[in-house]
Each structure stands twice: as C-alpha cells, then as structure tokens.
Design a protein around this nucleic acid. Sequence first.
RNA 1: GCGUCACUAGCUCAACUGGUAGAGCAAUUGACUCUUAAUCAAUAGGUUCGGGGUUCGAGUCCCCGGUGACGCACCA
Length: 487
Amino acid sequence: MENNNLDLNVLEKQMMENLAKLREMGIEPYKYNFNATHSIKELIEKKDEFVDKDIEISIAGRMISERKHGKVMFIDVKDQIEKVQVYIKKDIVGEQKYLAAKLFDIGDIVGVKGKVFLTHTGELTLAASDIDILSKALKPLPEKFHGLKDLEMRYRKRYLDLIVNDESKIVFRRRSEIINSIRKFLSERDFLEVETPILQPIYGGAFAQPFTTHHNTHDMQLFLRIANELYLKRLIVGGINRVFEFAKDFRNEGIDRTHNPEFTQVEFYQAYADYNDMMNLVEEIFEVLVPEKKITYGEMEIDFTRPWRRVDFFKSIEDKTGFDVRGKSTEELKEIAKKLNIDLEGKKTYGKILDEIFSEKVQKDLVNPSFVVNHPLEISPLARKHREIEGVVERFEPIIAGMEVGNSFSELNDPIDQRERFMKQVDERKQGDTEAFQMDEDFIESLMYGMPPTGGVGLGIDRIVMLLTNQHSIRDVVLFPLLKKEK
RNA sequence: GCGUCACUAGCUCAACUGGUAGAGCAAUUGACUCUUAAUCAAUAGGUUCGGGGUUCGAGUCCCCGGUGACGCACCA
C-alpha cells in the first residue's frame, strides 16, 4: 500500500494510515458529490431559523480544528471564510461513525448533517446526526493560530495561503469585485466587451520589450501583446463606437513591487470623445469603486473627491524646480538634471530624461488622485497633438499615491501624422532604444479609412487593487506571481 | 544585473562571544459526553536551504551555489 517513491514525513505517513483504516472500515474517503442544504455562510446568516428547531440541515467544508473529549468531539468546519462548530457525540452518530470521525485529520473535507443548537457559551453549533468524509487530506495544514507567514510559500502554494489566511482570500474577492464593478460601469454605458489577439505578429501600444514566441505551422515569429490599444482602435474604425477589453499584457522586463511580467489592464475607447471626456469617465469609475471617497494606503490618506487635480507636465516641473524644460535639447536636459541632482544612470534618450525629471520632482508627491496632463510629444507617439499648446499632446496619466494607474489620450487619428510618429520610433530603435515602437502599416491603413475622434484609456487593474486593498506588492494581488523555478 | 538581509521539526519561532539543536501549535498513545488557541499525562518528530573549507568541535566563522524579501538599476 505504502508508496516508497513518496518521501513521506511522519505526519504524512499517519495520514496515509488513517486513509487505509477508513477504507478497511468500508468507507470511501473520496466521494463523488455531496448535496449540502446550506452553505456555512447561509447557516450563520439564517441561524434563527434553525437554532433549537427540529430541522436537519447539512453543510460541507474543510475540517480546520478538532477538540476531542472521549466520547464527544468538537470540530470546526470552514467553507470560504465562514466556519461553524460541529458537535459529534457518540450516542447520536453511533459507534461506527464515531470511530470513523476519530480517523479524520485536520484538512479533510467533510459533509455533516444535523440539527442546530447553541452551546452553553452561546456558540452556534451543528450537532451531527451523520458525518462523512468527502475528501481525505494527506499533508498537514499550516498551523491554525499563526497561519502561513512564509512569503515564498504563500506565493508558490497560493492554495495554502487561501486556506489559512482569510485576509488573502478577502483581497482576491475584492479584486473580483473591482473588475466586476468596472465591467458593469462600462457595459451600462454601452461599451462592448471584446477580445483581441494576445499573440501578435507586430507588437505595439506601449514602450516595452516583448516576450517572443513562435508558431510552428505558419513558421512565424509572434509576440505576446504588450498592449491591446492598436486592435481596439481598429474596432473604433470598424464602428464599434464604445469598446473595452480586460487584457492580460506581457512585458519582458524587471520585477518589483509594482511590476509583474504579466499584468492586467482594462482599456476602453469612446468615439467622438476627447481626453477631457475620458478624465470625467475615470473620475466616475472611481466614484463607483470608492463610494466612501477616502481610503488609507499605508501611511497615506487618499481623498478621491472630484474633481481630481490637473497637473500640467511642463508647468509642474517649472513650478517645482524653476526650470522651464520645454523645447530643450537632450544635452540641455542633462545639464538641468545634473543641477537638480537627478541620477540619470542608464537614461539616455530625450524622453526618458524628461520622464525621470518629472518622476523625481513631481510625481512622487502626488498622493491624492491627480491627472498629469499634456505630456511631451516625443514620448507619446499615439496621442494627438494638443489643440493649442505647441510640442505637447492631449494625454493624461492618473496618479494615485505616487503610482501611475493608467494612461489616456485624445487618440491620434490622422494617418499621415501617425506614420511620421512611427517613423521617428523606427529611428529611435535604430539608435538602440529597444523599447521603441515597431512600424505598423496595417494599423495606419485602418486609420486611412477614417477613425472618428476618439478618447482612450488604459487602467492598471493590479495597481488599483493594491490601492483599494492596502497591499504594497503586486504579488499580493496576483494569485500566482512569477517566481523563479525551485531547484 | 548589483547590494543588504533571511532560510532551523508539518507550521510559527528560540538556540549568547563556536561547545549535547529547543519551545508552542500540529501529530501519536492514554484519561475525559458542552469544548473552543480545551485540559492533564506520556511519546515521537531534524540532511539546521545545498556543496566545500577552517576547527578537537560549525545552526553559528569563511568560500561557492540556490530561493526569497527589501533597496538600487531596468521598466509603466
């Protein structure tokens, strides 16, 4: 019976023996189904209907603790985050069932039938008239009191984290609620949810290095998308005037507290709108997501009250530093950065230097939700030129707690301008910028058929979930974050 | 990629300047028919992340490697 290939510790051997003993008693420890009359949550919510009534109900869940008292035992059964105590009395369940129940281990999934009562101390308890094992556990759970703290194990074995740490389960419930709220918000406003390719022959829509893969039959190189922007805009050309997609995007870059190589964005595009309309829409979304208006994120108090601050990219730099960086050459920017004590190590291009000055001097301090607006043309190849101001585009980035949570523009719909912007990117690439865009003739062709004026937004779901669940690492809001292989 | 720190029983953690690896929970056996971090008694459980070195002696010191956390860099 024992499998010598398995390297079992003492506890695992004992659990394996309990499994064998149950089978010897004629009990199959892996049942096919169980029809519970109520979830534990329902039992708790409707307890007045059951307590001391002559009603038998049944529940199922994981046995997470036990207290044995000779001919009586108490176990705690948990389903989701709710748990209920079960009272198993030899006189009630009978000799056989009682002996079987003694062979159950913490971690086993059980089904219980019985009547509900309150103990002397007032605890809601199900007195078992029948109890069955539904699934046998063969490894011990982490300890009930301290839970599972080891971060590496929580990420690698997320199922254990979810079994043992309710806080973790609550974060992922909240994540689902947030996504649902945004989906509902957009759907109610006639946005159509679509799916666009993850495998793309040409990648685009963001500055990033892609993951590369290969399709055998067509013998073609493919990229995992870094964004879905260019596909959604093709749909705007096609007359889907309001469109959105929750998209897993993939960027082949470093990992840190706010970056996972695969992450989720929702992008939405609205024909006949501009970036001002989209700012309103973003504010409205957060009105739904944060009805309480104020949240605490770490040490920060964040107030979502509308309207959010508008922070002009160039003007805010000038206000903070006294330097007008508009229209400056790359060399002049380097000079200014030096005077401001900004470390430019690794940053060479015009756009990156500008961005670094902005991040260091302005963005860091934007705690309350703010829209950074009117970015330099050079770092925004898909955004329309500003209708009044030379050298900048109609673009905004929502910043909350110093963190970028999105990106948006009045979308560039002039195909000739778009081609020129791509050409500039191709030049940058030739000069060694590995994140520069690829030329996408097919996309330009779509614009040549005419795209209505359009506003578009991308929101980083993971970061929004971090903010709203007070988590400080993206790994704590992604169920299975990328880790190195264990060796 | 670089730097700092961490890794000890199934889990959570101890172990002083190098000197017999320990506790709580979980587990096993026994007692106990309203306990609830049950209690009481006894028992068992270890490749101290892996490899090498120094030493009479290494969880502890040194070197190489692994994984993770944090910071920096890269990056939205």
